[in-house]
Amino acid sequence: MYQALSISLRVRDRLILNNVDITIRPGKFTAVVGPNGAGKSSLLKVLAHEQRADDGEVSINGKEISTYTSGELSLVRAVLPQSTTVQFAFSVMQIVMLGRHAHRTLRSENERILKEVMALTGVEAFRDRNYMTLSGGEKQRVQLARVLAQVWDETVYPRYILLDEPTSSLDIAQQQQIFGLARQVCERNIGVMAIVHDLNQAVQFADHLYFLKDGKIVASGGAREVFTKPNIEETFCCRVNVYHDPCNNCPYIIPERETFVYTPKLKIN
């Protein structure tokens, strides 16, 4: 289990995260949704140990996160950022191989893992190309392959991947592909946590859903149970209607048109 308990984070006088609890379970897809500025990325940074919380505790598999060295930490958790620029002309394969940086595994083992994750993410076809020349969607798939290479080992302890709005610059097919792959890797006892911008995508792929607003968790639980009109309207200050999609057997929302009028402190009864 990947757990954050009573996390608070202050930047100068602003409270960015306020007493946040979140649990990422192995083999499950946990999504965090919330309006811009809610503290989603800060939460991910705290979880990844990139930033220290002012209060509260983060633990992975029962062990406090600060007791891990950066090398040990990378064996249990990987992070996929929104986008990644690379300065020098590294090839796709070299980038994916960076996921194995902290692993002390044999070269043959690394190559086997590389082969598997590149096949899964479909980057094998352009594995020798210069990363800098790829399109946005291709780049993100390469980075996902890199992240998967980092946690692909069959270990007794569960591993986790944290995705920070991984599809923000991708088209709709590429978005489905990335989330579909993330969903698929859950089967390997990998816990997935993703910040998801699109609410319909969140409920389509996630097992657990957290609503974050002004640094606080306002609702959480099984994705379909908490994906309700009041929860969404309270979190996003926007009127929506929830329907059922028989094709995916999953709820979906459509926002109401009049709420496009900008009213930051809209109270909804």
């Binding site: 990139e50 950066s70 990378s74 940086h101 902290a102 890199r146 980092q150």
Partner: peptide, 21 residues
């Protein structure tokens, strides 16, 4: 040299893959 390869991804990403930046 190995750490520098990871640094090519950026500082935060290098930390994610296990480099003591």
């Amino acid at each position: 040299s190995r750490s520098l390869n990871a640094m090519a991804l950026g500082e935060a990403e290098a930390f994610h893959v296990g480099v003591d930046i």
